[in-house]
């Protein structure tokens, strides 16, 4: 009878452990993650307060960097921040008032057109909408 009792304990313990091993992941799975699912086609790039005219911000859009420019004239424009030449991250030059790539001195105007230096093609442009404090960038 001792052996049988021992086996029952092992069996009961094992099954309990197994059930815990199944229920715990399931329990964790059904709790939604803290950051909600990233929408790949739309992102709040910045708050209006953090971006005065003639300044810019690099933000993460999907997997890649993008650049949001608040122009001197007051428009918001957003582009892919990846230089079309060799994929460096571009930046906004407030002295030149246009977008510039430090790697090989490529220049883009505020429509994303490559205007000088090695870049062979324009930067992809995104749509910008301002809703309250939020500057929302979306893929057209």
């Amino acid at each position: 009878m001792g052996r049988r009792r021992f086996l029952d304990v092992i069996l009961g313990g094992g099954i309990t452990a197994l059930l815990v091993g199944i229920v715990y992941p399931v329990f964790r799975f059904i709790i939604p993650p803290e950051q909600p699912e990233a929408d790949a086609s739309r992102v709040v790039a910045a708050k209006t307060s953090e971006l005065p005219p003639n300044s810019s911000k690099i933000f993460k859009f999907g997997k890649d960097p993008a650049i949001l420019v608040h122009t001197k004239s007051g428009d918001y424009r957003a582009f892919a921040a990846i230089c079309t030449h060799l994929d460096c991250t571009v930046q906004y030059r407030d002295d030149l008032e246009h977008i510039w790539c430090a790697c090989h001195n490529g220049h883009y105007d505020l429509n994303g057109n490559n205007i000088s230096g090695p870049p062979p093609s324009p930067l992809a442009q995104y749509e910008v909408t301002v809703r309250g404090e939020d500057i929302i960038v979306s893929k057209a």
Partner: peptide
């Protein structure tokens, strides 16, 4: 990594 990669090109 993307911005670190820039350094190599620079």
């Amino acid at each position: 990594l993307h911005s670190a990669d820039d350094a190599l090109i620079k």
